[in-house]
Amino acid sequence: MHGQLLLLGVPGTELTAADAELYQAIQPGGFVIFGRNVASPEQLRKLTDDLREVVHETPIIAIDQEGGRVTRTRDIGAEPPSAQELREKGDLGAIARHGMITADLLRLLGINMDFAPVLDISYDDEADNALRGRCYGSDAQEVITNAGIFNRNLRHRKVLSSGKHFPSCGLADADPHHDLPHVHKSVTEMLKSDLLPYTALMPELDALMTCHAHFTAIDPDSPGLPGSMSHNLITRLLRDQLGYKGVVMTDDLDMGAILNTYGRGPDVKRAIAAGNDMAMICHQPETAHVAVEHLKELPNGTVDDALKRIAKLKKRLKDPFKFSMKLWDQLDAETMQLRIDVLGEEGAREIRDYSGVKRSPVEDY
């Protein structure tokens, strides 16, 4: 039962006997796919098929497939344009195509949820806070328009979405993969800016992902408390004040912003107690047994409420397409054409190098 509150990563490109034993014992609510799990379309589809077989309840099988540098399928197919490239092109039809192609490709690979769209506002496109190239707008309305189109087309093709990173990482002063960012902005200020994409799109999102940033005005009495563990932020602001009724999940708890401070077990317990329904353990799934034991310490009502929201979301999960390389090749060609239409022939053929001073682990995960 408590395993349903966890989203676990997978170590490699195939399900080993040790992996299967762990997942059968934990019975997690879902899995998260990363670049390390991707070797070929056929291999990835077999992996997701195996993951569905190893648990009793239909699992969420999720991925960060945003386009640009956050494209987990980059090594086996064309890289879609990024959110920033799409917004700079100014072609809403291209954003719609991106949503539909992404959904079809994911369903072919056996994936039923995309951790997208990013709803953060880009206040500085060059900021070293892990968001470079990933934002749909430099103001709230631009994000609402562009991210909303992507989200509606993704969901129209029956892949679930998860808006991120609530309530805002646009003003983060660090990369949470390494350190805990601090954001100095009041709720009143955020209601006029950063929170607008969430309040506008909330009815159309299947889930929300909370961020690992400390909001000094929301938790003034808890210095350094990440938003992903904040009762004030998740329960009081998101659920009580903004009225959100859907599934809330943490960002990866294996990030430096959490690992540097909290131990495995207490981190998961605090995250669910704060109001999240699911906690993400992406890179140390072998610690899931410890996490479950700590989750058992939570009040029954807290666990039951989370399980009800998760069960409601899972009713919307759709079966994958029948796999065929012909369909893969077609979708890959459509992705490349979208890339050409947005970036031009020369830009589309360019091989991007995402290394450099503003490098973030988000590219390789």
Rank of each mutant, 00 (worst) to 15 (best):
L22N: 09
L160N: 09
D364Q: 04
E21V: 09
S360T: 14
N276W: 10
R107D: 10
F150C: 07
T188W: 03
I351R: 13
H56L: 01
D267N: 11
V55Y: 07
R157C: 06
I101E: 03
L205K: 11
E126F: 02
N153C: 03
A94Q: 09
V247T: 14
L6Q: 10
V70Y: 00
I101D: 03
P266W: 10
L108P: 01
R72K: 14
E350A: 07
G148M: 07
P81H: 06
I351F: 05
L44E: 02
N129Q: 06
E334M: 11
L338D: 11
P220D: 13
D329L: 09
L259M: 07
D91Y: 05
D254I: 15
M202E: 05
D173R: 04
Y365S: 12
I63L: 04
M280P: 00
L201M: 09
D114C: 01
G246R: 04
L44I: 01
Y198F: 12
L238D: 05
E126M: 05
L195F: 05
R264I: 15
G30F: 01
N129S: 06
D114G: 02
M202N: 08
E334G: 05
H212L: 07
G301H: 14
R339K: 11
L343H: 12
S82F: 01
I26L: 07
D206E: 14
V32I: 11
G30N: 14
P80C: 04
L233F: 04
R74V: 15
R74W: 11
P167G: 04
N37S: 15
Q84A: 12
A147S: 02
I258A: 10
N112M: 06
D329E: 15
F166Q: 02
I101T: 12
G347Y: 13
G224E: 11
D341V: 10
R36I: 15
A127W: 11
G347S: 13
Y123G: 13
K358G: 10
I340Q: 09
R134S: 14
I63R: 02
E57F: 00
T302M: 14
H212A: 11
E297Y: 06
G110I: 13
A274V: 04
G110R: 08
A306N: 02
L196M: 07
D267L: 03
T71A: 04
E204T: 12
D50R: 06
L131M: 11
L298W: 01
G356D: 10
L106E: 15
M249S: 15
L259K: 14
L8Q: 12
A83H: 02
S222E: 12
A18F: 07
I95P: 00
K296D: 03
D254C: 08
A78W: 07
D104R: 15
I33C: 04
K312M: 15
T48Y: 05
A20W: 03
H214K: 08
